[in-house]
Design a protein around this nucleic acid. Structure first.
Lengths: 162, 162
DNA sequence: GAATGGGTACTCGGATATAACTTGTCCGAGTCTCTTAGG
DNA sequence: CCTAAGAGACTCGGACAAGTTATATCCGAGTACCCATTC
């Protein structure tokens, strides 16, 4: 099991956008530069966030991305789902119906016990993620950064904020 | 995020092995036939289970696989880890150190807040998995199968059990 | 009749190809801004 | 001086390749069994 690298990028981008003054935006190219990641590929993930209604895009000069809602209303689960898709990690292929001892689907009205246990664990994972918001992450990030880094970040961001 | 198909196969195989009389074994080819999956590829996953100490192998004629321990001592987490590897799903690439506002690693003694939240969710996932055993899954599987299927399974298994 | 040695067949184990997906890149459609010409 | 139209440049959005991992397969090493031969 493994999560896409885009999840990390998307969360960091959301944190940065959450730190911007309300109403201002930042182009995808600047977001990529700030985080040191490939601009074209990051754009792909930002589009996914846009489709999911987490960020909104502004076209043309002085355009860019901004959070679609207050950061304390955006959960980590939403961001992960937007990038990774909402498909389950464990997919039951109904093995029990196959093989010499298997039977028709009508024999098994309830879902497979193995799938139930795996999905229950995924629900626990989702519950944990939904308990944290982007606002919380952004605050923790500021807290964990030395003064000099924060000052550099603020200078850089104010230079390019629209 | 997505789990390997081998996880499902491995869990089903463990359930079947748990239903065998203690001390008896079943070859990989029979396990594959029973579940209707490619024999050669299933063998790969069974080797992983063997390396992890979940099942033991017996070579030669009348050989095969059997559970290495009582089924109620084997957790689902163990099986998943054996097949998928114990690497974390979320990998932090220390984005915060990169870009124009980043700094040296010495600036960040504590792990990134984003990684902390993601890993906390994974821990919840693991805790949920470790709360269930192979014995429990096997019992649930028997419970959910109609009498006719069980009888066919017993006939088939007794024919090939060593 | 019992024991032993060799052959045989069956098992697992690791090295080797193919397919799907993630990662990475590019170019086109749309839109806002700035400039310039006219009133 | 003010207004308006046009050109330009910058933005996002979706379509198009390359690398990496998961999937699938094969063949070789080892082992227990069976059988024939000998005592």
């Amino acid at each position: 099991m493994r999560l896409s690298e885009g999840v990390e990028w998307a969360l960091h981008c959301c944190c940065l956008l959450a730190s911007l003054p309300t109403g201002s935006s930042l182009p995808a190219a600047r977001l990529a530069e700030f985080h040191g990641v490939p601009p074209a590929y990051l754009a792909k993930h930002l589009q996914a966030l846009s489709r999911a209604g987490i960020i909104t895009s502004v076209s043309g000069p002085r355009g860019g991305y901004q959070l679609a809602r207050p950061a304390d209303g955006i959960t980590v689960e939403e961001v992960v789902d937007a990038v990774e898709g909402r498909t389950r990690a464990f997919r039951c292929s109904e093995i029990r119906q196959r093989g010499p001892a298997g039977g028709p689907a009508s024999w098994y009205p309830a879902p497979c016990g193995i799938a139930r246990v795996m999905w229950e664990a995924e629900d626990a994972w989702r519950r944990s993620l939904s308990g944290h918001t982007v606002a919380e992450l952004a605050a923790a990030g500021v807290e964990a950064t030395p003064r000099e880094g924060l000052e550099r970040a603020v200078r850089w961001v104010t230079e390019f904020t629209r």
